[in-house]
Nucleic acid binder design. Structure first.
Lengths: 147, 147
DNA sequence: ATCGCTGCAAAAATTTTGCAGGTAA
DNA sequence: TTACCTGCAAAATTTTTGCAGCGAT
């Protein structure tokens, strides 16, 4: 598996975080992150597999890598309700938490900048005695082209 | 498939809505709705299958029925991010839209009454040129018992 | 040289579909 | 009777896992 010189600036950080957990920076993982970095939007394992150069990486490795990277906080999992998990690269802290606007016809995804619910987490947590409350919020509609 | 006398008040309404689309009120569908009405919380197809009396209904029928009922607006689909679709009975209009607070340890689900995002739909739709915007919002945390 | 990682293939889990017979209206 | 519906089984999808060899450190 060939190494790539043109990988993103986040890779040093990645190497750091992998080392911290005795995980290895392999060509496959670099390739996966490269694709995710180029797309910026949520991708399924299948999307990733199709985008990779043939032979770069096995589909099983993609699943294993995404689980690992999710655990390390380098990618985030999203569910749009179609039974397919999608993952997005977490590039910087302020970009870490955000939401999507998904077209129900063509599945195009718009990344939304703002998050509107953080103050609710605290309130809802207190009201129900829950700790460490997070949330997932996605919007769905018909995009301009599909109308 | 035996009919049941003790079915909920929503059943006449159900029959009405089924007839409106040339759909039939079968024993299986009644059984599914009965279980969903008793639980009130989100259930997976497997949960439903386990709760039904043995022989009441095939698993494939559950999938088909849930799709049908979802299309009729009688049940609503929720996704908690574990790759398993869950469905909840829609009993009345004001109960139709709501959210959940899910324990990440034991998966207990608290039904939340309020919805906090409706005004956002309009704003986000306009801003991005989307029509018919809806949203899905779920909260996750650690429940009192699991802390 | 380790110990983790990957490919391959098989398995598991979830959901969909074809078809022949059964049933609500 | 006539569509629609169901059970059964097979298939399609998505994800996980076992294992032997490979590779990053």
């Amino acid at each position: 598996m060939k190494a790539r010189a043109h990988d993103r600036a986040s890779l040093p950080d990645l190497a750091q975080r992998l080392r911290g957990k005795s995980r290895r920076l392999t060509g496959q993982r670099q390739a996966i992150l490269r694709i995710l970095a180029a797309r910026r939007g949520p991708m399924s394992s299948k999307d990733l597999f199709a985008s990779l150069d043939k032979g770069d990486c096995d589909l099983a490795t993609i699943y294993r890598s995404l689980h690992l990277l999710e655990g390390l906080g380098l990618v985030k999992r999203f569910d749009f309700g179609d039974g397919v998990a999608r993952y997005e690269l977490v590039t910087c802290a302020e970009h870490e938490h955000h939401h999507h606007l998904v077209c129900v016809r063509c599945a195009v995804v718009v990344e939304l900048e703002d998050c509107f619910a953080p103050e609710l987490e605290e309130k809802i947590g207190q009201r129900n005695g829950f700790k460490s409350v997070t949330h997932k919020l996605e919007f769905f509609g018909v995009c301009p082209r599909c109308q």
